[in-house]
Simulated scan of single mutants.
Amino acid sequence: MAIGASVEAPAAGSGGYSGRVTPFVVLTCIVAGSGGILFGYDLGISGGVTSMDSFLKTFFPEVYSHKQDSNVSNYCQFDSELLTVFTSSLYIAGLIATLFASCVTRRFGRRASMLIGGTVFIAGSAFGGAAVNVPMLLLNRILLGIGLGFTNQVTLSASACTCGSGD
Rank of each mutant, 00 (worst) to 15 (best):
C103F: 15
L115R: 04
I122R: 11
D69S: 03
I142Q: 02
E62N: 02
S159L: 12
V132Q: 15
K67S: 03
K57S: 09
I96S: 07
I146Q: 08
L138P: 06
C76Q: 15
V134L: 08
K67T: 06
V72A: 08
A97Y: 11
L139R: 11
M136L: 09
L156C: 01
D167G: 10
I142A: 10
K67N: 06
Q77S: 09
G94D: 07
N140Q: 15
L56Y: 05
I96F: 14
F127M: 15
R106S: 04
D53H: 07
N71Y: 13
S157C: 10
S80D: 02
F78H: 08
S73L: 05
G124F: 10
G48P: 01
T151H: 13
S125N: 15
V134D: 10
T87L: 07
Q153C: 14
I122A: 13
F55L: 04
V120H: 11
F78V: 00
A123C: 06
M52S: 08
V120T: 12
L143W: 12
Q153I: 11
T105P: 07
F100C: 03
I146F: 07
T119N: 04
P61R: 09
L90S: 07
V49R: 00
S46I: 05
A131H: 00
L144W: 11
S70C: 06
T50V: 00
Y64N: 06
S51V: 14
R106Q: 12
S89M: 12
A158D: 14
F150R: 05
F59H: 02
A131N: 07
F86L: 07
V104D: 15
S165Q: 13
C161Q: 15
M52P: 00
F86V: 02
G44E: 14
T162L: 05
T119D: 08
S73P: 03
T155G: 02
S80M: 01
L90E: 04
L115A: 09
R111Q: 11
A160T: 14
C163T: 01
V154E: 13
G48R: 06
L83Y: 05
L156D: 05
S113T: 13
G149Y: 13
T84D: 12
S89D: 03
C161R: 13
L138T: 06
F59G: 02
L115H: 08
G145M: 01
V120I: 15
Q153D: 14
N74C: 06
I122V: 15
G129Y: 05
S88F: 08
G47N: 08
N140I: 06
I122L: 15
T58A: 05
T105S: 15
T50L: 07
T119W: 14
I122M: 15
S165Y: 14
L139S: 07
G44C: 04
R110M: 06
S51T: 15
K67R: 07
V134P: 00
F86K: 00
V63H: 04
G94K: 02
C103P: 12
T84P: 03
M114T: 09
A101G: 02
T98D: 11
F100P: 00
F150E: 12
T87F: 11
G145H: 07
